[in-house]
């Protein structure tokens, strides 16, 4: 498992990135920026990079964050670990990832229910069709809506 053709984010996808487009243009939030983080192979590094993301967000006095991933499988460890590290700092966090019928979380925790599925294929699978299961504007919009509700529910205070 890793990044299949239907979820891989091409250079053009990053150029047009719908998540950045939606969040940076919303007047109801103060957009801080994009933290780009890799997915290391080594478990120690997986935990370390997740922790560094949370420290950075905390230092920015972030109220909330949306995390997205273009792969699934072994990178789910990084994904959920980073969500937990961010959540532990008292920052509201929601996620976007391909789940469908074949990429559910092996282990669930309190954060997995805040992960939206970006699957678009009728069968819920990696179809090997480029672009088919990519995150789009609608997914980004939904995630931002969910984050707003979660920030309110978590009683986030703007500093």
């Amino acid at each position: 498992m890793g990044i299949g053709p239907s979820t891989k984010e091409t250079t053009l996808h990053h150029f047009h990135d719908p998540l950045v487009r939606e969040v940076s243009n919303d007047p109801d939030v103060d957009f801080l920026g994009v933290i780009l983080v890799g997915t290391p192979q080594d478990n120690y590094l997986k935990n370390l990079v997740g922790k560094r993301v949370s420290v950075w967000l905390d230092a920015m006095r972030a109220n909330g964050a949306i995390i997205s991933a273009d792969g699934w499988g072994n990178s789910d460890v990084d994904f959920i670990n980073t969500m937990a590290e961010i959540g532990d700092k008292g920052i509201s966090i929601v996620g976007l990832k391909f789940i469908g019928a074949q990429a559910g979380f092996v282990v669930e925790n309190e954060y997995t229910k805040f992960v939206e599925d970006i699957n678009k294929s009728p069968a819920g699978i990696e179809t090997e069709v480029v672009g088919e299961n990519n995150l789009d504007s609608k997914d980004a919009h939904k995630a931002l809506g969910l984050l707003k509700l979660k920030m309110r529910h978590d009683g986030q205070v703007v500093h």
Partner: peptide
């Protein structure tokens, strides 16, 4: 742009970083 007074929100993008074609 900055929207002072609104909740501060960031995007975290997890991307591939393990080797060839990744």
């Amino acid at each position: 742009t900055q929207n002072p007074g609104q909740p501060k929100v960031a995007v975290v993008k997890e991307v591939a970083g393990q080797g060839a074609m990744y």
